[in-house]
Nucleic acid binder design. Structure first.
Lengths: 244, 244
DNA sequence: GAGTGGTCTAGACCACTAG
DNA sequence: TAGTGGTCTAGACCACTCG
């Protein structure tokens, strides 16, 4: 069996295989939660040795796209890293779960993006975006406010829903509603001040310092799918990172 | 050749090998910057197949401890992640290098640790610490103030030096002076306020909000080697993280 | 040209999972 | 018990580095 993906034939075989399979995951041919073909099947299908198949799978496992289960099979991992964002306002490190913040969508409309948003999402000049405004409440009562922008081309459906039809966890919701899967993200923290709607929604005086977390979330193909700015009060804010 | 490290013999061979080699790196038997024995030598020495040696090396490469160079050899990597801390006060993402912040040691003394410090460094009840106070200045003139605590047992030499003998990059300096190598770290960001010496050194009014970065840095064996609290003004603060 | 790591093969046997 | 991934072997050939 030939490799169909358009990868450079000078690349190592295992690389080309893992590229091929990445494409299958990205396209949805291999669905999150499902098992991929067994090593034996892949070996036979592509006419390569097991070791090569294993090495290709290794790559995708290391990238967090696949998950092996001895005796069961190899599965497409559902990127579940929304959980990792509970570093946001986490009270104490490793203090156990604290549940999903309450979530209230304030608005969901299609708009023309600002230059900043267009740049962050790498949009063409005339592309529209879906703009969500959201208020979240952590268990301890702290709130934060989010502006979320998504390319209308892929996410227009979100503008057609009622605000109360949204799930508190957006990433699985994007997948269910729009077939778009968030695979990675980059966050930038800074300190800002509350103004206008932010101040009002967070019940803070104008100009109060806030923590600001800016996030660009991307799909498997590294294309930006979501640009998000979250702001919340500084008290009790904690953000924890491991570095190697 | 037998494996000398005390690893559980139920573990896979490649695991035991990589544990063994990790110990060699941690103990300094394999020095940073130097090449480790070739795959052929290791294969013969331990009486295992190349594939197994390669897999063991893979583990250490993935953990960032070794670095392969085709045609040259496999080298012990000098953990150089101080650079990654230039996310701290980085002005714009990927705006190019900004050099090493100027650094001024204000004091270096042996003291009895507070309960917090003792806990962070996992010290016994009567253990002492070296306490460094440091003021750093970024190229753009912004300053931040650091308290740094290290177990006196391994770092007492730092208390015997003159403040101006310290290098601006502490981690290579620890290695050179005390033979201690920092391998990983955990940081926690929060928002605090400036008081006393911090306020004075940063020339901020008492109670001004500050960014606070708390760090526990560990050696190869995961034992805490350094506890550090950095505080700086909130303006211009940016901290960027990639998440997968 | 000698030596290094990089890729790839074609098996064997083991440990775990599920029906 | 059949099928899965996990470990391990013993080679082959290639690409790169350096003297």
């Amino acid at each position: 069996m030939k490799i169909t993906s358009s990868s450079d034939s000078r690349l190592p075989l295992y690389q080309r295989l893992s590229d091929e399979w990445l494409a299958k995951i990205a396209s949805g041919e291999w669905q999150p939660g499902e098992a991929i073909p067994t090593e034996a099947e892949l070996t036979q299908h592509y006419g390569v040795a097991v070791g090569t198949v294993r090495k290709a799978i290794d790559c995708l496992v290391n990238d967090g796209l696949l998950e092996r289960n001895q005796g069961r099979g190899t599965f497409v991992r559902r990127p579940q890293f929304d959980a990792s964002f509970f570093r946001f306002f986490r009270q104490l490190p490793a203090t156990g779960e604290q549940g999903i913040p309450e979530s209230h969508i304030l608005s969901n409309r299609i708009t023309a993006p600002s230059a900043t948003v267009r740049h962050a999402l790498e949009l063409d000049a005339d592309e529209k975006v879906v703009h969500l405004k959201r208020l979240r409440t952590i268990r301890n009562g702290r709130r934060f406010y989010e502006d979320i922008w998504l390319p209308a081309k892929a996410f227009h459906r979100l503008a057609e829903l009622q605000p109360d039809e949204f799930d508190p966890l957006l990433y699985p919701f994007y997948e269910a509603q729009c077939g778009q899967i968030i695979a990675s993200a980059q966050e930038t923290l800074s300190i800002s001040t509350a103004h206008d709607e932010v101040a009002e929604r967070l019940q803070l005086a104008e100009g109060t310092p806030t923590v600001r977390v800016e996030r660009i979330a991307r799909g498997y193909n590294r294309k930006p799918l979501e640009y998000r700015i979250a702001q919340g009060p500084t008290e009790g804010f904690r953000y924890q990172i491991d570095i190697n």
